[in-house]
Design a protein around this nucleic acid. Structure first.
Length: 483
RNA sequence: UCCUCCUUAGCUCAGUUGGUUAGAGCACAUGACUGUUAAUCAUGGGGUCCUAGGUUCAAGCCCUAGAGGGGGAGCCA
């Protein structure tokens, strides 16, 4: 009996195994005892539900159960039987219980009760053992898998772009420096600056803030590629939607114009949501319930009109609203919100960057659905975006989601050599930094497009969580790199 | 980085106008209970009131500074 292979709880709850003798291993969620019977809810992370272990205390002796508390790890062997209670169909009648690891209840911080997310962040090494975080991590896994499946099925190639980069022209924010120099004794060059020729790469290097530029190199050979990897921003951003280390998905496609780009992004977002609905329903139902409980603590006007599951279905079933920046400015300028001066930043003239209050108004109040904004003024967008015929806007597109804001940012890339070179000069990027990027426009250039999707922002939307620190196992934010 | 709010038992929180020995629920321990569902019932232990300084006869409560955390803004994905 000792050599019985472990069975996952997910399997036992799905399949009819009544009468079978099986072994399960997992962590104790709760223990309830009375004189003649002990119930232990055991969870192994394979599924959100627990297996109820039923044991006769007279058979095992009192001492065994005194060492079993919430958090302990057990190996239990016994027969799967129909449950007499109403909470579950089957349960495990224990014949053998082995304590693999105890959890001293005076020290173990997790209790069978509701904990605040703030407290759980302080014990991020243990929070995967809660229902909420195990559900999030399973959904996160499923989404990562679905990203690869989506692109693979479309014939895109997964391109591994570098994490250490020697280029600081990506322009997406402050970078983390990578060096092996002795920080207490830095070598100096003749000008009195730091002599990076003595560094590991013999030049300044940083952690990547985007794989896009390298992604374009791949698209100019393989036609359609995507990247999916960690990205680093040393911005001092303290918000519920920014991390210093996050995961980004960046497809890049030759021969796609801005409209093809939007179609792909919308199709992908819908695919991911549908995949979660098809494959993660038990976890989503739990998260839906959790979100409903949380809503009760909010003021009436801050509550969302739809539940999490309703929001997910809504995204799949409805087309995203597409409009240009110029149209958006008109809507905002003529809105009662603007006339009654309810915006902190009033919309007055064309050319201003949209504040998050404006984006929220468009998505949550005006259209009440995901919005794709296009053709922004070139002054407020990046150098590599393709200039439109009007000479003042670029073929950019941002997808805005309710509650999250910008979830996708993309554009048709400037494929004309002279135009791109001119923009590089205007912005003040040194040509020797991006010569390889300019080469793609010199040799066999082609119209192409791409976008970036913040993976954690997508997980925020799908799980209904409110803080990005709760949808990544070990969040990195300013002042915090614990665990 | 800016604005704003918070910090009291392991956790979630109450604590009146500044006034005696700082409370509750959960958790934990002990006991009871013939099948529970975050079990229930009884009893018990558990406190650097974030830190430092100040005002006062008297500070958990008022003032100053600092630390940690939440929310919002900017930057963006």
């Amino acid at each position: 009996m000792k050599d019985l292979k472990r069975t996952k709880i997910k399997h036992l709850l799905q399949e009819n195994e009544v009468g079978q003798t099986v072994n399960i291993k997992g962590w104790v969620r709760t223990k309830r005892d009375s004189k003649n019977v002990v119930f232990i809810a055991l969870n192994d992370g394979s599924v959100i539900h627990n297996m109820q272990v039923v044991a006769d205390p007279n058979r095992f002796g009192e001492e065994l159960f005194k060492s079993i508390h919430t958090g302990a790890c057990l190996s239990v062997t016994g027969e799967i039987t129909p449950s007499q209670g109403s909470g579950q169909k089957v349960e495990l009648a224990a014949a053998q219980i082995e304590v693999l690891g105890t959890a001293d209840p005076e020290q173990y911080p997790l209790q069978p009760k509701k904990h605040s997310l703030e407290f759980l962040r302080e014990i991020a090494h243990l929070r995967p053992r809660t229902n909420t975080f195990s559900a999030i991590l399973r959904v996160r896994h499923a989404m990562a898998y679905a990203v690869h499946k989506f692109f693979n099925d479309k014939g895109f190639f997964y391109l591994h772009t570098p994490i250490i980069t020697g280029s600081d022209a990506e322009g997406a924010g402050e970078m983390f420096r990578v060096t092996t120099l002795d920080l207490h004794n830095l070598p100096k060059n003749e000008q009195g600056g730091i002599d990076f020729t003595q560094d590991f790469f013999e030049k300044e290097t940083n952690l990547t803030v985007s794989g896009q530029l390298e992604g374009e190199l791949g698209a100019m050979a393989l036609s359609e590629i995507y990247t999916f990897g960690p990205t680093f921003r040393a911005e001092n951003s303290n918000t519920t939607r920014h991390l210093a280390e996050f995961w980004m998905i960046e497809p890049e496609m030759a021969f796609y114009d801005i409209n093809d780009n939007m179609d792909l992004a919308e199709e992908m977002l819908k695919y991911l949501v549908q995949y979660a609905l098809d494959n993660c329903m038990e976890d989503l139902e739990f998260l839906n319930q959790r979100a409903l409980e949380e809503e009760k603590n909010k003021k009436q006007e801050e509550r969302s009109e739809m539940s999490l599951l309703e929001r997910l279905r809504f995204v799949v079933e409805n087309d995203f609203q597409r409009l240009t920046y110029t149209e958006a400015i008109d809507i905002l300028k003529n809105s009662n919100h603007n006339k009654k001066k309810k915006f902190q930043f009033l919309i007055e003239a064309w050319g201003a960057d949209l504040q998050s209050e404006h984006e929220r108004y468009l998505v949550e109040k005006h259209f009440k659905k995901p919005v794709i904004l296009t053709n922004y003024p070139k002054e407020i967008k990046s150098f590599y975006m393709r200039e439109n015929e009007d000479g003042k806007t670029v073929a950019a597109m941002d997808i805005l989601f309710p509650g999250i804001g910008e979830i996708v940012g993309g554009s048709q890339r400037e494929e004309r050599y002279e135009k791109l070179k001119q923009r590089v000069q205007e912005i003040g990027i040194k040509e020797e930094q991006v010569w390889w990027y300019l080469d793609t426009r010199k040799f066999g250039t082609a119209p192409h497009s791409g976008f970036g999707l913040g993976f954690e922002r997508m997980i925020l939307f799908i799980t209904g969580m409110g803080n990005i620190r709760d949808v990544i196992p070990f969040p990195r934010t300013p002042g915090n790199a614990e665990f």
